[in-house]
Design a protein around this nucleic acid. Structure first.
Lengths: 232, 232
DNA sequence: GCAATGGCTTGACTTAGATCAAATCCCGTT
DNA sequence: AACGGGATTTGATCTAAGTCAAGCCATTGC
C-alpha cells in the first residue's frame, strides 16, 4: 500500500507533525477498476466523496458547446482528485475519465471529514495539496490568456525536461491530441507548431520522443513569447 | 471586528464544529493601510504569511511580457488572499495591488500554522475557502479556453445580476479597463463587445450601469457562445 | 496480406480579437 | 469655467489560431 503515500507526504512543510496512519485513511476507501475511456464522473454530478488514482491515469476536463476539450489536469498514481466539492459542497465542476485501464480509490465524504477532524495534520496536508493545485491553475490561466501556443508548448517541454531527468530528451506521456487539449488548442495547431519549432532547430520530433536541441532558445520562447519566422 | 467573519464562516459544511474564537485569529494579525495603486506583494516575493482584506479592494494579477494584464481575482472585505505559499511553500505566484485605499491584515505563517494545529475546524474552513477558489479557477480556465469574449461577458453580467439582487439592473464595481483584464481581454475589445451587445438589444449601457434588457438572450449567449451579427 | 480504424499531418480559408493611432468623454483641480 | 489626464470609444489593419477538407501513416484485427 506504500504507493499511496504521495497524498499524505506531499507537504514537508509540517514535517514536525506525527506520521499519519496510512491504514486509517485507506480503511475508509473503496476500490474501483475502470477501463480506458470510461467515465468516473461528469460535470454537474452531485459529489459525496473524492477519489485518488491507485494505478493508471485520469484526465479532468471541460467541454465547449462545440466539442473542443480543455484538459484541466492529468493525474497519476497517488494523486487525489475531485476533492473540491467535498469541502466546498455542491457538484463536480468538470468531467473525469480514465485514459488508461486504471484503479481508483473512492473516499466517502462523511467518513473523510470525520477522520480529518480527528487528525489535524491530515487537513494540513490536504491544504498543501490544494494550494499546489491552485498554483498550477494560476500558471494555467496565465498561459491561456497571456501566452501564445508556441510559448505554452515550449514551457511544457521545459517542464517535462525537469520531471524526466534526461535534460535533452523528453518523452510525451500522453497522445499529441491530448497534449493539444491540455495546452488549450487543437491537434492541427499543435502539429503545425511542432513543425515550426523543428524547422527552427529548437526541437527534433520523432513520434512521442522529442529532442530539445536548443534549450536556451526554448527558455527564451517560453517567456518572451514570440516564435520568429524562419529566415533561412 | 465582526466584519471579518466571512473568513471563518464561509463554510457551513462543518456547522457541527465549535465556534471559532475570532479573537484568537485576529490576535495574530498585523494591520496595514494601503493607498490606491500601492503594491502589496509582487510575483516571486518570498511569502511568510498571508493577507486578508479588512476594507477596500485588492486585485491579484499576472502580467505578460508585453504588459497585458490578466486579473486572477478581485478580493473585498473579509476575503483572505496569498494563502497558497503558506501551505505549499515558496513564493507568491502573482502580484497583489490595492485598487482602492484599503486596509489589509497580515497573518504570519508560523503563528497561523501553530494556531491551526490547535483548532482543526479552522483548517476545515480554510479547505472550504481554497476549494471554492479552485472551483472559480476551473470556471476561469473554461472561459478562457472554451468561450469567446461575448460569452464571458454575458456570463459576468449574469453573475453580477445574481450577486446584486436587482435582476435586470447591474452596476459594475470595477472600471471597464479592469473588467477587460478580468475577462482576459483588452479595453478596446471590451468596448466593441458592449456596443455589439447593445446593438442587439441584449443590454443597455450607461457608464457603469448596465440594464439587462434580454435576460434569456444573455443566458443563451453565455453558454452557446456565439453573438450573431446584427441584421439590418 | 489487406481492409480499416484512429492518430497525425497538411493545405486553403476564415475569423476573433489584438495592435496601433486618434479622437472624445469624463471628472476632479485649479 | 477652463485645464489636464486618465478612461473610453472608434476606426483601420494585422495576425494567431480555429475550421473544413483531404490525405497519410501505422497499427490492429480479420
Amino acid at each position: 500500500m506504500k504507493q499511496y503515500i504521495p497524498l499524505l507526504s506531499q507537504s514537508t512543510l509540517f514535517g514536525g507533525l506525527p506520521e499519519v496512519q496510512l491504514d486509517d485513511i485507506l480503511a475508509i476507501a473503496a476500490e474501483k477498476t475502470m477501463n480506458n475511456g470510461e467515465m468516473i464522473f461528469f460535470e454537474g454530478d452531485p459529489a459525496d466523496g473524492f477519489y485518488m488514482v491507485a494505478a493508471g491515469m485520469v484526465k479532468i476536463y471541460k467541454l465547449s458547446p462545440n466539442g473542443k476539450e480543455q484538459i484541466l489536469h492529468m493525474f497519476g498514481p497517488g494523486e487525489p482528485f475531485g476533492e473540491v466539492p467535498v469541502f466546498a459542497g455542491g457538484v463536480f465542476p468538470a468531467n473525469a475519465e480514465a485514459v488508461k485501464n486504471s484503479t481508483v480509490l473512492f473516499f466517502p465524504r462523511k467518513k473523510f471529514v470525520d477522520l480529518v477532524s480527528e487528525k489535524p495534520y491530515l487537513a494540513l496536508n490536504m491544504l498543501a495539496v490544494l494550494s499546489k493545485r491552485l498554483r498550477h491553475f494560476t500558471i494555467q490561466v496565465e498561459n491561456l490568456s497571456l501566452k501564445e501556443v508556441p510559448a505554452r508548448l515550449a514551457g511544457y517541454f521545459l517542464l517535462l525536461s525537469e520531471e524526466q531527468k534526461n535534460t535533452r530528451h523528453v518523452t510525451l506521456n500522453i497522445s499529441k491530441g491530448q497534449l493539444a487539449g491540455f495546452l488549450g488548442t487543437i491537434p492541427e495547431t499543435l502539429s503545425r507548431m511542432l513543425r515550426k519549432m523543428s524547422d527552427q532547430g529548437l526541437i527534433e520530433v520523432e513520434g512521442r520522443k522529442i529532442r530539445l536541441t536548443d534549450y536556451d532558445g526554448l527558455i527564451d520562447l517560453a517567456d518572451t513569447g514570440r516564435l520568429e519566422a524562419a529566415e533561412i
